[in-house]
Design a protein around this nucleic acid. Structure first.
Lengths: 199, 199
DNA sequence: CAATTTTCGCTAACAGTGTTAGCAAAGATA
DNA sequence: TATCTTTGCTAACACTGTTAGCGAAAATTG
């Protein structure tokens, strides 16, 4: 590849990054509903079709953010897990990390789960999501191995775990007036109950 | 009120009903994303502004369906509860009813929780939702009273219960390829674990 | 019954949205 | 320098929610 082609390639990546950054700024300032291709074009000071040379359509931009979101969540879960040895403590820490991610990165979480309904066919095949769930599955498997129930299906328990976490987050996002202290209590109650069911 | 005003009132209600029916048909055939005021106007064979004389805006139409959805869910939960005496059995049956509602009335459930993000400020103040949660709170309270833990906050447990249910439904709606038999297993596992935590 | 007022429902428009065809200018190659 | 490729633009299409303004029909009044 010629030196000139290299530069073009670099510029292409820079512009792609610029589009994502501009989009992210709009989302943080005005929410997902306010995100439009024209606003992105305005922000990067290019015309609308330029955006389409970097992303097939708007969904592709959202999909990128979904992937990024799962990657970030996975990193958080991994860090929380690494901080503990005991499987039950790991699950506890991961639950808190999950909860923290959802509320400190609301925009990401809402896109990953809330607005994901139309594009959910694709989301299932996103590798970033698989890595993310793998992190949880592993922790559940370890906790189950540490217990006495060898006949229980780890996948079943993983689903229960994830459902509890996502359910808590979703419900608590609707009830935004409730104090955070109680929200954490609910989380701890639910997770401790789940962990007991593994022993 | 004159006889003529009565007729007008009746016609107004009929048209309002017609709008909702037309909207519902569109939603069932093409999904929420495909619902537009123009399509509704076409379906009822009136012009667009007529729709706006019966509903302030599109959100008002969606809000009506949200209310209807919560009323339906409440009825299902109530019926499931009435079918049992033992509080733990009631919670079990209600969980199944909740799950059944979510999957047999997918459109309703998705509107009530999925697309509700933009309008969630209003949704919290919907009386139909309060009735719905009251149904669950009562059952949890009863189950807790039947147990030995008098110091536990029923509201905390109710939130855990609801979160588990909503979480299970949401996650399982994304993973549409999983067999239904396993989904029910996961539900039973999660709910039985929760019920144990009340004893 | 005729005149007036109210109500009704229409067309057309505004300001947005995602998306794409076609063209002009700038850049790279020969 | 001339040709070719690429780049990025304008303008358009087909939608969306929402509303102003007008003409006709219906109800009320004299």
């Amino acid at each position: 590849m010629s030196i000139i082609a290299q530069r073009k390639d670099r510029q292409k990546k820079e512009m792609r990054e610029g589009i994502l950054q501009a989009a992210w700024k709009i989302v943080n300032e005005e929410g997902w509903q306010a995100l439009s291709i024209r606003k992105i074009a305005d922000a990067i000071e290019y015309s609308v079709p330029v955006v389409y040379t970097h992303f097939e359509n708007k969904d592709a931009i959202l999909l990128q953010f979904t992937k990024d979101g799962f990657a970030l969540l996975q990193a958080d879960l991994h860090a929380a897990k690494k901080a503990h040895r005991k499987p039950s403590k790991q699950l506890e820490a991961m639950a808190l990390a999950y909860w923290d991610f959802a509320f400190s990165q609301k925009e990401y979480y809402q896109l990953m789960f809330g607005l994901g309904i139309p594009t959910c066919d694709r989301v299932v095949n996103v590798p970033e999501m698989k890595s993310c769930t793998a992190e949880m599955i592993e922790a559940v498997r370890d906790a189950l191995a540490a217990g006495s129930q060898s006949e229980v299906d780890p996948m079943l328990k993983f689903h229960t775990y994830w459902s509890i976490l996502h359910g808590l987050v979703s419900i608590q996002m609707i009830e935004s007036n409730r104090p955070n202290s109680m929200k954490v209590l609910i989380l701890q109650d639910a997770v401790s109950g789940f962990i007991k069911s593994l022993e």
